[in-house]
């Protein structure tokens, strides 16, 4: 940069950002394609309305339409997410307490994972009706498995040497969990929780597809039937934003929590 700012890191960061021009080009190209698709191909409007119309619809109808529906869906998502995550972590803690139990149950869990959400959703509707509960339960159900699996893997990831050290110090089981197993499990748990975040959104939407109600999922289905693509795309934008925000929030939380974790590891490495 002429007359440029000194300092290597700043320049390096800029260079790295410029290095990602292909991604920006693809993103800009895709948006341009979307915007101009109808005008260039002459395809009917309901196939792909121009981007600005969708954005306008998303903003104009926000108050009357998307925000009330979004809040309903968001409630399902958040409740389901916490329910599924808590159940997953809890079940993993119980299972890993006994190697025997874990070895017996984990293969079953892998099998249960193959049960699609969509099929569980209607059962929950039969059992729990058309209210909030079945949607929360569907969202929780899909969150449960990735969190369970990653927590089980995480709780077993403490190195044998350190476990032996704790044993030699006569540490109580509680100390082993708090000071060793849980810190080691954290990075793994976060992997599961992050995929649970996205899955909880899918779960809530699917729950609404099956069980109706006033959420965004219902808007999507109605729009599909009416070939109202603008409204459909606007709904997708809201859902995708919710998923991304949830995902980024958890990633931010991870960064804060694991910074503590990695720093503690680093200082331990320094001291030795």
């Amino acid at each position: 940069m002429p007359g440029g700012r000194p300092g290597r890191p700043a320049r390096a960061r800029l260079r790295r950002l410029i290095g990602y021009w292909p991604a920006l080009a693809v993103g800009a190209g895709a948006l341009l394609f979307w915007e101009l698709f109808g005008a260039v191909t002459g395809m009917p409007r309901y196939i792909l309305p121009p981007m600005h119309e969708v954005v306008v619809a998303a903003v104009v109808d926000a108050k009357s339409h998307y925000i009330p529906a979004g809040l309903v869906t968001l409630q399902e998502i958040v409740l389901g997410f916490f329910l599924g995550t808590a159940a997953g972590v809890g079940a993993a803690a119980v299972l890993t307490a006994s190697a025997r139990l874990e070895a017996a149950v984990m293969p079953l869990m892998a099998g249960l994972r193959a049960v699609p959400v969509l099929v569980v959703a209607p059962l929950f509707v039969i059992w729990f009706g058309f209210g909030l509960e079945p949607k929360v339960l569907v969202a929780g159900f899909v969150c449960f498995f990735p969190v369970l699996v990653s927590t089980v893997v995480g709780l077993k990831s403490a190195p044998e040497n350190e476990l032996a050290l704790f044993r030699s110090l006569m540490a109580s089981p509680g100390q082993v969990y708090l000071k060793l197993k849980i810190p080691y499990a954290m990075p793994h748990i976060f992997v599961g929780v992050k995929s649970a975040a996205v899955l909880s959104v899918i779960g809530a939407i699917v729950g609404e597809w099956v069980g109706g109600g006033n959420g965004i999922g219902v808007i999507l289905i109605r729009a599909t039937i009416a070939n109202a693509t603008t409204s459909l795309l606007a709904g997708v934008i809201y859902i995708a934003s919710a998923a991304v925000v949830l995902f980024l929030t958890i990633e931010g939380l991870e960064r804060v929590l694991l910074r503590w974790y990695y720093e503690s590891r680093a200082t331990r490495g320094d001291a030795s």
């Binding site: 975040a197 996205v198 899955l199 959104v201 899918i202 939407i205 699917v206 999507l220 289905i221 729009a223 599909t224 693509t229 459909l232 795309l233 709904g235 997708v236 859902i239 995708a240 998923a243 991304v244 995902f247 980024l248």
Partner: peptide, 10 residues
């Protein structure tokens, strides 16, 4: 980070 299933109607 995006629920792909949501675009099934599309």
């Amino acid at each position: 980070a995006v629920p792909m299933l949501a675009i099934a109607p599309l």
